[in-house]
Design a protein around this nucleic acid. Structure first.
Lengths: 346, 346
DNA sequence: CTGAAAGCGCTAACAC
DNA sequence: GTGTTAGCGCTTTCAG
């Protein structure tokens, strides 16, 4: 049924080893004539090597696992940001001739299973809280190289690749402060002392410090998740919650979009009465009215850096070195403007 | 290094076959005592079977390939619809204990490679034009079960799972006609005589026929791709292109969203002057102003049906039967309204 | 430049 | 209930 190395070898009148060498580009060890003959037969018969057999016989599988959190019965959290990362990483891996196994993780033990069962050469963890990354042990990771996207975990078993979240938040906040805003709401998911959201919060505070503006902690608003619905809810209730606030920094575009919709629905003009900035620069920010001012992280670059770092480390047989932090830019669009005059027209 | 079946067998003082039977749930053949002992050791040692070895020794890999089109150097086409399908299919496969390999395809030959090299049990083709599906031959598919999402290809090697595109378009168009619209633009990518877009076009015509309205072919507008930018462009130029048109049927939500933005930018009120309907009912339709009237396809259900059909067929060792077509619903929101009065105020 | 032997970790098909 | 034998398709190691 299936065409095997042996079939090719027999037809070519050589040993399987010779065919194997041709296939794997160890061409220095084979005569030009043999190479040509073998290649012809391979093409004719449509021979494709068995990856399982290779993986079993050699120590490498050329397989990278992309692991994402997923509640038990739930679908993956394919936020626009994660989607973009996924697409770009697949592309980069393909270019390097690796394959991608996509797996949702609901219990810690599944990480083990995922890494070991397919003898993965490497794994990318996307969207896990730092706490989960911290927990990885050598028993789990084995020799599998593990890279965590957007992680600030100090776990030496993993390498973090992330955007410069702190600077991004600082830029966005400085922009609001420069426009004249003095009471700015920080809207994001609850956070602890490390992680992406913490970094963005610190950048938010940095900007206030640099501008010599005191920030009132009462303006911290925790949302359940960075999705549209909580944003809509927050936007709707903002006038009563924080009547004095003239701007909102949201930790994600989709959240910001929800907030704007909520504000507009509540009769608050954006940006005339309240300004809103997001974070990510997803496509969606360009589709809404007003178009969203936001912080751009170069997702394509983040994906490329992550994959190349991982694959280099696999092929170099050495652990990757320090974590990588990528630059960000402020994208000024239409959702931010100076605050309304303190004593405006009645 | 790695814990193997043999290690477990030795420690338990039994043969590898016994361990294998315990692991695979052939518990009828093993005594309760042995089962308990083996299970304890497996847990203690953190044993995870090698999937490559299994795949090599048995005929099944428990691996499903998700193949998507990707231009050579390009990232996957992760449209919101495809993203949703991907997430749901991963979930369904996980529930049935299969793994997912995600692969972008740029050349026909890569389908071969993808299917054979990992000895896939099945493959899902997502986002390919029918023409590509038609082209699959037994030489390529081998014994791999292949299922094509949104395909109308008659190729017996594949099974199609799709939404009832024709009915969806008919419902949306009938809604516009019922509101009083008589000159409706059909906006979609170019299409041939079969496929998703053709079906939607036929449904569009059906509705006109049922309403006894003659449709002017000049109102057919082909866009380069169903994305935001071409929609924006079309919306902007619509007033000059089709001054008499009072409504647009777009074959995708993202296209509709672009069209609305273009219209609004050109000073045309939506829906007061021009109504717009989309297709898919993606989240984004709810985020824009006005909220989009659209056709809902139940993506979750489509994914579940696809996966279950595929896996059943794999486990039942028989080809799946007829293609499956899933129902759709019209979701009326704010982007549609009656056309403006013929003789409006100057 | 080419080949023979051994084995990766597992399961199928039979024996006992 | 349990063990034995063989082999999946490939690479590794070592001989020529």
């Amino acid at each position: 049924m299936r065409v095997t190395l042996k079939d090719i070898a027999e037809e070519a009148g050589v040993s399987t080893m010779t065919v194997s060498n041709v296939i794997n580009g160890n061409r220095a060890r084979v005569s030009a004539r043999t190479i040509a003959k073998v290649e012809r037969i391979v093409a004719e018969r449509g021979y494709v090597p068995s990856a399982s057999a290779r993986s079993l016989a050699s120590s490498s599988s050329r397989l990278i696992g992309l692991l994402m959190p997923a509640a038990d019965e739930d679908s993956l959290t394919l936020s626009p940001h994660n989607t973009a990362m996924l697409g770009q990483m697949e592309r980069q891996l393909r270019k390097r001739d690796y394959h991608l196994i996509l797996r949702g993780i609901s219990r810690q033990a599944e990480v083990d299973e995922a890494l070991k069962s397919w003898n993965l050469d490497g794994a990318v963890l996307l969207g896990f809280p730092d706490r989960e990354i911290d927990r990885l042990t050598p028993a789990t990771t084995g020799n599998v190289r593990v890279l965590a996207i957007d992680s600030y975990s100090p776990n030496p078993l993993t390498t973090g690749v992330r955007s410069d979240d702190r600077t991004g938040a600082r830029l966005a906040t400085a922009h609001l402060l420069a426009l004249g805003h003095r009471r700015i709401v920080f809207a994001g998911p609850g956070f602890s002392d490390v992680g992406v959201v913490r970094e963005r919060f610190e950048g938010f505070l940095d900007a206030h410090k640099e501008a010599g503006v005191t920030w009132d902690e009462g303006l911290l608003v925790a949302v359940g998740s960075t999705t549209y619905a909580p944003g809509l809810d927050l936007g709707t209730r903002l006038p009563e919650l924080h009547p004095g606030a003239s701007a909102v920094f949201a930790t994600a575009d989709i959240l910001a979009v929800g907030i704007i919709a909520g504000l507009v629905g509540a009769g608050v003009a954006v940006p005339a009465e309240v300004s809103v900035v997001g974070f990510d620069n997803l496509d969606i920010g360009g589709y809404v009215t007003p178009q969203l001012t936001t912080v751009e992280q170069n997702v394509q670059r983040k994906a490329a850096v992550a994959v190349n770092l991982l694959v280099d480390s696999i092929e170099g047989e050495e652990r990757p070195d320090a974590p990588v932090t990528l630059g960000v830019d402020l994208v000024e669009r239409a959702s931010t403007a100076p605050p309304p005059e303190p004593a405006g027209p009645a």
